[in-house]
């Protein structure tokens, strides 16, 4: 009896030898329990030790093993050979990122965009430091010096806090490819997550990035980011809620006296 096998076509790029990426084909034993990550591990151990990819947790928590599988951005650990067998599986690095080597992409720009939305709680003291003219009502602290938060207040932003920074949404977003300056789905959703937090007073500090032309206004609601998100964050909703907010602020800026402006 011959062993069942499955073919993988993997986009390979070796920066020291190749001028451009090209596909390499591997035929490996088929095991219905294997994830794509297991298959890559088999290739690296048995067939080609130079195959390069990121992975860590193997359970869809760390967000390291994002790759494009048959055209769809997916986590390698969540993709199973049995869902593709007997067809060939085509594996590429995440789209819209520079390829560092094989399936590894350069995430530097992504990290910078994440940082640009100030993804941390800006409390009343910090908010007033940033803008002394602004009156901020401090959120009361409890007796042990932390903030209480009601389940409903948590529920408001919880969905947007589930992001694991796997970058699948950046790979899914054509606007990202058309305008690499676009802040992008995950970072804008993260900014929204902090803006919605009852402990946070930093929305003014995030406005410049979120409401910039390269912020939410570069989005055309393709919606594919939310489709591929492994954690149901729905970044498309986060972005478009900010467009509605921005439109409202834009209109109000004509009606309201410009208080606090130099």
């Amino acid at each position: 009896m011959t062993e069942q096998t499955i073919k993988l076509e993997i986009l390979r790029y070796n920066p020291e030898a190749d001028n451009e990426p090209s596909f390499g084909t591997f035929e490996i034993p088929y095991n219905e329990a294997w994830s794509l990550l297991d298959a890559l591990e088999y290739i690296k151990d048995e067939l080609d030790s130079s195959l390069t990819y990121r992975w860590s947790c193997r359970m869809a928590v760390c967000g390291s093993c994002g790759m494009v599988v048959n055209g769809r951005p997916q986590l390698g650990c969540e993709t199973f050979l049995r869902d593709h067998y007997p067809n060939t599986i085509k594996v590429e690095p995440l789209a819209n990122f520079p390829i560092e080597k094989d399936l590894i992409v350069d995430a530097t720009g992504f990290i910078e965009k994440l940082e640009s939305v100030k993804p941390y709680i800006i409390d009343a003291v910090d908010a007033m430091k940033a803008n002394p003219a602004k009156k901020v009502k401090e959120t009361p602290k409890n007796e042990i010096g932390t903030y209480n938060q009601k389940p409903a207040e948590l529920g408001l932003f919880k969905q947007f806090s589930m992001c694991i920074n796997c970058m699948l949404c950046y790979s899914a977003c054509p606007q990202m490819g058309l305008n690499p300056m676009f802040t992008g789905p995950a970072a804008l959703a993260l900014g929204h997550r902090y803006n919605l937090d009852s402990r946070d007073h930093g929305s003014d500090e995030r406005t410049e990035v979120i409401q910039d032309k390269n912020g939410v206004w570069s989005c055309t609601f393709v919606g594919y980011c939310s489709e591929v998100c492994p954690k149901n964050v729905d970044p498309a909703a986060a972005i478009n809620q900010n467009k509605a907010q921005g439109a409202q602020d834009w209109a109000l800026s004509f009606l309201m006296p410009r208080k606090g402006e130099k």
């Binding site: 790029y13 920066p15 020291e16 451009e20 990426p21 789209a95 520079p98 390829i99 560092e100 350069d106 054509p174 490819g177 058309l178």
Partner: peptide
């Protein structure tokens, strides 16, 4: 040495 490869956005993406 690093030599990141940037894939162009295809015209018919």
């Amino acid at each position: 040495s690093r030599r990141p490869y940037v894939r162009p956005m295809p015209a018919n993406w």
